[in-house]
């Protein structure tokens, strides 16, 4: 029997993506008042996954950065960080990280249950 552990691979990639994204959002928030700073975000995880599947490769690259379209006009000093929008994104990243760790640990628990000695 072949053991397909792609769920662990995807959960791991999602966790890494969420952590990297959160770090990028931290940068945006820290630069919320830096003149000329343009907000960036990571490409959504689903898009990266779809791209990897279309390419048929198992290597999942989730570090592609995309500029954030500023909601409303940016500041007169050229800064495009909207703090509320960034906090929303940070919440999303934290949630994604939680999902990743939960799925990961549950999958491990299921594997362990399957491998346990029958009682």
């Amino acid at each position: 029997m072949q053991l397909d552990l792609s769920i662990l691979r995807v959960a791991g990639a999602l966790g890494r993506h969420a952590a990297e994204r959160h770090s990028l959002i931290a940068r945006n928030v820290a630069n919320a008042d830096t003149p000329g700073y343009r907000a960036v975000d990571l490409e959504p995880f689903a898009d990266a996954l779809r791209r990897a599947e279309a390419a048929g490769s198992s290597a999942l690259s989730t570090t592609r950065q995309v500029p954030v379209a500023a909601p409303g006009a940016g500041s007169p000093n050229g800064n495009t960080v909207a703090l509320e929008d960034q906090m929303l994104r940070a919440g999303q990243a934290a949630r994604a990280s939680e999902i990743a760790t939960t799925v990961f640990s549950k999958s491990i628990a299921m594997l362990r249950a399957a491998a346990a000695r029958p009682r």
Partner: peptide, 27 residues
């Protein structure tokens, strides 16, 4: 003040993410 609070929020979120990641190592 507002920007400071946002930074604090990010910091505590990161800590929470890290500790929940560590939780998976415990089991």
């Amino acid at each position: 003040n507002r920007s400071y609070e946002a930074g604090l929020q990010i910091l505590s979120q990161a800590r929470q993410m890290y500790s929940s990641l560590l939780e998976t190592l415990k089991r």
